[in-house]
């Protein structure tokens, strides 16, 4: 019985089954990720912003050392602009268990804008596991104390050897639009929604009265008009389009996952 269960699990998790479930909408997987694979580093999509007097602080862990005692691992970060063009990559070796990176316009060679970055672990070790980097990003506005949020959504995978990278692994329905209604009441001086297309497809997105197209892995920060109900409602074909929200009141900001 145990063997049959194990076999079924393997079948349900393989790439072909995932694609079929996704296509017909039967128990669609949120992530197009084959959990039978091993030695894989997955990354959430983290927002960086250096626009409008922001800088970003990223705090990440040496997951391979903490959980697998592999103290020779390295981390590579890939920085993309809002149109999904690679603008910088940075390697970190000899990392601590917890690490910090400041992403400001100096770090990004003068760029004052926003975009996405990914974090992958590299190792020669064979740990037979899949790890996820879902650490913490802080947003400092006008040099104030950064407001931190945790990682949001797995969107990319790479082998430990640095080969076979894949982006946009969040599922999307081919048939049906999905509503994501943020469970909060909005009553601020200003609210911005940071959204990224985590799928491989071009997405038509509607946020309250704002309609726009976002290509795969592209990102956008929009200053939104809150509707009469003081809600944020996001409609798209993506199974999970969870935004990051920037709320402003007087000189203070609050950043969190919606």
């Amino acid at each position: 019985m145990k063997l049959i269960k194990l076999l079924l699990k393997k079948i349900v998790r393989n790439k072909f089954s995932i694609l079929i479930r996704n296509l017909i909408g039967f128990k669609p997987p949120i992530f197009l990720l084959n959990l039978n694979k091993k030695n894989i580093s997955t990354s959430d999509a983290f927002f960086w912003r250096t626009d409008q007097n922001y800088h970003t602080i990223f705090k990440f862990s040496d997951i391979l050392n903490l959980f697998f005692k592999d103290n020779s691992s390295e981390v590579e970060m890939l920085f993309y602009d809002k149109n999904n063009n690679l603008i910088k990559s940075k390697k970190f070796s000899n990392i601590e268990l917890s690490n910090k990176l400041i992403i400001d316009k100096t770090f990004l060679d003068g760029i004052e804008d926003h975009g996405i970055f990914y974090v992958f672990h590299k190792s020669k070790a064979n740990i037979n596991s899949i790890i996820r980097n879902s650490c913490y990003t802080g947003y400092s506005y006008k040099e104030s104390l950064p407001s931190f949020v945790h990682g949001n959504l797995i969107t990319s995978i790479r082998n430990f050897d640095g080969q076979n990278i894949e982006f946009g692994i969040v599922g999307a329905s081919s048939l049906k639009k999905k509503l994501y209604k943020v469970q909060n009441f909005y009553d601020f001086d200003k609210t911005e929604v940071a959204i990224m297309n985590p799928t491989k497809n071009r997405l038509e997105i509607e946020i309250n009265s704002n309609k726009f197209i976002l290509e795969s892995c592209c990102s956008k920060i929009i200053n939104i008009d809150i509707n009469n109900n003081k809600l944020i409602e996001i409609v798209s074909n993506c199974y999970l389009l969870r935004p990051i929200i920037f709320n402003y009141k007087k000189q203070f900001i609050d950043v969190y996952h919606g």
Binding site: L33, F67, S129, I130, I131, H150, G151, F252
Partner: peptide, 22 residues
């Protein structure tokens, strides 16, 4: 807390960082 600004967040449990069955 610093200069009247405040940041508030929770950490993930450790099993959030490993996706495989082990």
């Amino acid at each position: 807390m610093k200069d009247k600004h405040i940041s508030f967040e929770h950490t993930h449990p450790p099993h959030h960082y490993i996706l495989s069955d082990d």
